[in-house]
């Protein structure tokens, strides 16, 4: 058990080491502006990772992962304003998002709603959070000392050192924190999908009835991975509002919900590194598109989404792995390859 887990985690460790190298080299060679931009991309990559875990491995069609991301960001901001420091606020952010996911998940999984319903409910929750928080612009809407600010949002206090609430981190240091958090979340998710729990989740994804007949309470496993995923998304939210400096209700809008789905579709379901890589790729693509006005961002993303659903439904990373494996082992075992297609990779 332990040995096989370690062997399966080899790709995770390789990518984690590459990430560490990047974390230490990037600030030496890149400009500060690029580093600040990268911090935002890293935050979004954590969000993509959380959906890769929930959808790609848990098989839960969550269209509203961005809701937990946004709730995490809001909870962090409000917590940090009230506590006067960021350490406990991070914990509050993760707890709020996970608790919200647990309650929502209880109603969905124990009600046994189907895939389509699940996707639509999570999306609806996100959109209603959007319209709810947009309306909170008056002075009467505040939590403790923090005004919610309607669609202008709230300015997020920067991270500080855990033992000194006045020692705020500089943007370059926030980059280190973000990158470290991404690597930690990635290794954690890579470990989780190789534990007994993770394997049962994958089993449920493949065939829920069979898993149930084997005696697993599939509702609990789904609720578990959904809640963990929400916690990871909240970590991304904390990093995001630190990278941008404020949090607005726009985080909950339809565009961002779609973006999260697109990262995972493009990167590939059933892998963790694919969606992370796709996030960075699309982040720079949309930034580049933002500089011109001929092609609208929505238009490009819509075309990308339709293209992948119709022509590359598995996403880039699994398709690449299949292609490499097919070349490496030419026609020796078509059946073996077919079997491996179902298996998961880092």
């Amino acid at each position: 058990m332990g040995g096989s887990t370690l062997r399966n985690m080899r790709p995770v460790i390789v990518f984690a080491v590459l990430g560490l190298l990047f974390m230490f080299i990037a600030p030496q060679v890149l400009q500060l502006f690029t580093i600040i931009n990268l911090t935002t991309a890293i935050a979004l990559a954590v969000l993509a990772l959380s959906l890769a875990l929930v959808w790609g491995f848990g098989g839960i069609l969550c269209f509203g992962q961005v809701a937990f991301f946004g709730l995490g960001a809001y909870a962090y901001t409000i917590g940090a304003i009230n506590f006067g420091g960021s350490t406990w606020a991070i914990l509050v952010a993760v707890m709020v998002a996970s608790a919200f996911a647990a309650i929502l998940g209880y109603f969905m999984f124990f009600g046994r709603v189907s895939d389509v319903y699940l996707g639509v409910i999570t999306l609806t929750v996100t959109l209603i959070l959007f319209s709810l928080i947009r309306r909170t612009s008056g002075p009467e809407y505040k939590i403790g000392n923090a005004l919610l600010g309607g669609f202008n949002g709230v300015t997020s206090p920067p991270l500080n050192l855990p033992w000194d609430t006045r020692a705020f981190l500089f943007p370059e240091q926030v980059f280190y924190v973000a990158m470290a958090a991404l690597i930690l979340c990635y290794v954690f998710a890579g470990w989780l999908v190789n534990t007994h729990f993770g394997r049962v989740c994958v089993g449920i994804r493949e065939n829920e009835l069979r898993a149930e007949l084997l005696g697993y309470d599939t509702r609990l496993y789904k609720l578990g991975i959904f809640t963990v995923g929400a916690g990871i998304a909240a970590v991304g939210g904390v990093l995001f509002c630190n990278g941008v400096g404020r949090i607005t209700p726009d985080v909950f809008n339809l565009y961002n919900a779609a973006l999260t789905i697109i990262w995972v579709i493009v990167g590939g379901r059933g892998t963790l590194i694919g969606p992370i890589a796709a996030t960075f790729g699309l982040f720079y693509l949309t930034s580049a598109l933002g500089g011109q006005s001929v092609l609208n961002n929505n238009l490009v993303l819509g075309v990308i989404l339709i293209f992948f659903v119709l022509l590359v439904p598995k996403g880039i990373a699994p398709t690449l792995v299949d292609w490499v494996e097919a070349r490496r082992r030419p026609k020796r075992s078509a059946r073996g390859r077919r079997r491996r297609n179902g298996a998961d990779r880092a």
Binding site: A258, N296, N298, L301, G302, I306, V309
Partner: peptide
Amino acid sequence: LATWGLSLLLIG
């Protein structure tokens, strides 16, 4: 997912 892509496409 395809109808979602269509939604973005039409907005764009």
